Simulated assay, not measured.
Amino acid sequence: MTTTYAALLRGINVGGSRKVPMADLRALLTGLGLDGVRTHLQSGQAVFTAAHGDEDSLAADITAAIEKRFGFPVDVIVRDHAYLKTVADACPFPADTLEGRQLHVTYFSAPVDAARFAEIDPAAYLPEEFRLGDRALYLYAPDGLGRSKLAEALARPRLTKGLIATSRNWNTVVKLVEMTGA
């Protein structure tokens, strides 16, 4: 039985550095024996099917292959369709009434608990808000991520220590659910 996954690559093709052309990424993933490889945008999303492995071993294989091919490390999180759909369905904010740039999901490599973010005073950042989910953090930033003070606070290295964390706007969250469900 095959499973459809999305690979979320962190920090590539941003500001002209750490370039990973999508055609090369597709070829690399195909070379790893993954099937039906497709990419979305230039910012590091790939969808594929695999009959072997699990999320962590697939992420490790992709990470190693990218470093070997491109010469720099890239953090990778792999999640299956069921997980991606569950995250989208569990959104605590009214996604259908918001613009995609106002709502983001940060995917984590492992579960996180509220204690990790206890130093964040939610009232200090209103109207911005965040909520934790299953290996995910939902961020409502009405003025977008680029202007978000809360996003800046949440990204402090001590809060994400020991984790891979990578964020996607809501449009991409929905697109990945669609792509992995097809």
Rank of each mutant, 00 (worst) to 15 (best):
V105I: 11
E129Q: 15
T180I: 11
G11P: 05
N13Q: 04
F93Y: 13
E128Q: 10
D35C: 15
L9W: 10
P142K: 02
G16L: 02
V14I: 15
A59W: 04
L159C: 04
A165E: 02
E99C: 12
H81T: 07
T172W: 05
T4H: 12
T49E: 11
A114P: 00
Y5R: 08
K149R: 14
K85F: 12
P111D: 08
A82W: 06
T172L: 05
A123S: 08
G16R: 02
Y140L: 11
L9G: 06
N169P: 01
T97F: 06
M179W: 11
A123P: 07
L28P: 07
A90N: 14
K68P: 03
Y125I: 03
E99A: 15
P127A: 00
D54A: 02
I120F: 02
V37H: 10
R26Y: 13
S17F: 10
P157N: 05
V47I: 15
L84M: 05
G162Q: 09
N169H: 03
H40R: 11
L41R: 05
H104E: 07
R101I: 00
A7L: 04
A60S: 13
V112K: 03
P142I: 00
G16F: 04
V74Q: 06
P111E: 13
A114Q: 13
A151N: 12
T160S: 09
R101F: 12
G16H: 01
A50D: 00
E152T: 15
Y125G: 04
T63A: 15
L132E: 11
L58H: 01
L137H: 03
R38N: 11
A82N: 10
T4F: 13
D35T: 14
G11A: 15
R10H: 15
A110M: 08
L145R: 08
D143H: 11
S109M: 06
I12Q: 03
T3R: 12
L176I: 13
A182E: 09
D61C: 04
T2C: 09
G162K: 08
A65D: 01
V78D: 02
D89I: 08
H81G: 12
G44W: 03
R147V: 08
K19Q: 12
R26K: 15
D113S: 07
L176Y: 00
T49V: 11
D134A: 13
V112N: 02
L176H: 00
A7F: 06
V78L: 03
G36Q: 07
T86I: 08
V78T: 00
K68Q: 13
A50T: 02
A182N: 09
G15H: 09
G53P: 01
F93S: 03
A123H: 06
V78S: 02
E152Y: 12
T106R: 13
P157T: 04
L163S: 14
L28N: 03
V173F: 06
A182I: 09
L139P: 01
D35G: 15
A114V: 06
D61N: 10
G181C: 09
W170G: 00
L32H: 08
A151M: 09
T97R: 14
T106N: 03
G36M: 04
Y140P: 02
A153M: 07
N13V: 07
T2Q: 14
P92Q: 10
A151G: 15
A51C: 05
D96R: 11
E152M: 11
L84G: 00
R116P: 05
M22I: 15
S167D: 04
A136E: 14
A64Q: 09
R156G: 13
L9K: 12
R116E: 04
D134C: 10
P73F: 08
I12M: 06
P73M: 08
E55M: 02
K19S: 15
